[in-house]
C-alpha cells in the first residue's frame, strides 16, 4: 500500500534544497522587515545566525545519511542516499554563497 512513506522519503532526499529555499526566503524577506523596524546591523546578525543554523542542519542531516549509507537495504535506497548527500552539498554551497553576501554587503541601502 502506498502510504505517505514514499513521499516522506522523497522529501528527506530534498532536505538540503528545502533548507536552502527556507534560508533564502527568510534572509531576503527579513531585510525588508529589519530595515523598516530596526537598523541594518540587526539584519547582518540575523543573516549570519540563519546561515549558521541552516548549514548546521544540512551538515547534521548529511552525516546521518552517511551513517545510513552502508546499511542501505537496496540499490535504489543507496542511490537515494547518495543523491541526498550530493544535493545537501550543493545546497550547503548555495547557503554559504547567500550568507557571505549578508556578511559582506551593507543592508538597507
Amino acid at each position: 500500500m502506498t502510504k505517505p512513506e514514499p513521499v516522506a522519503r522523497l522529501l528527506r532526499m530534498l532536505f538540503g534544497p528545502l533548507v536552502w529555499a527556507a534560508h533564502f526566503l527568510l534572509v531576503y524577506a527579513a531585510e525588508s522587515v529589519f530595515c523598516r523596524l530596526l537598523d541594518g546591523p540587526g539584519h547582518s546578525i540575523f543573516v549570519i545566525t540563519a546561515t549558521a543554523i541552516a548549514l548546521a542542519m544540512v551538515l547534521l542531516r548529511s552525516s546521518a545519511a552517511m551513517r545510513l549509507k552502508p546499511a542501505a537495504s537496496s540499490d535504489h535506497e543507496g542511490f537515494l542516499l547518495r543523491v541526498e548527500m550530493s544535493l545537501s552539498a550543493l545546497a550547503g554551497l548555495g547557503i554559504l554563497y547567500v550568507g557571505t553576501v549578508g556578511a559582506l554587503l551593507p543592508a538597507c541601502r
Binding site: 534544497p17 536552502w20 531585510e31 548555495g94 547567500v98 549578508g102 543592508a107 541601502r109
Partner: peptide, 27 residues
C-alpha cells in the same frame, strides 16, 4: 530549486537594496 532564487536578477536596475541584489546574484 536554485532557479526559484533568481527572479530578482531580472530586476537589478529597479532600485532594490544592494544586499538583496547580492542574494540573487549569489544564487
Amino acid at each position: 530549486f536554485f532557479s526559484f532564487g533568481l527572479w530578482v536578477h531580472h530586476m537589478f536596475t529597479t532600485g532594490i537594496p544592494t544586499r538583496s541584489l547580492g542574494f540573487f546574484s549569489a544564487a
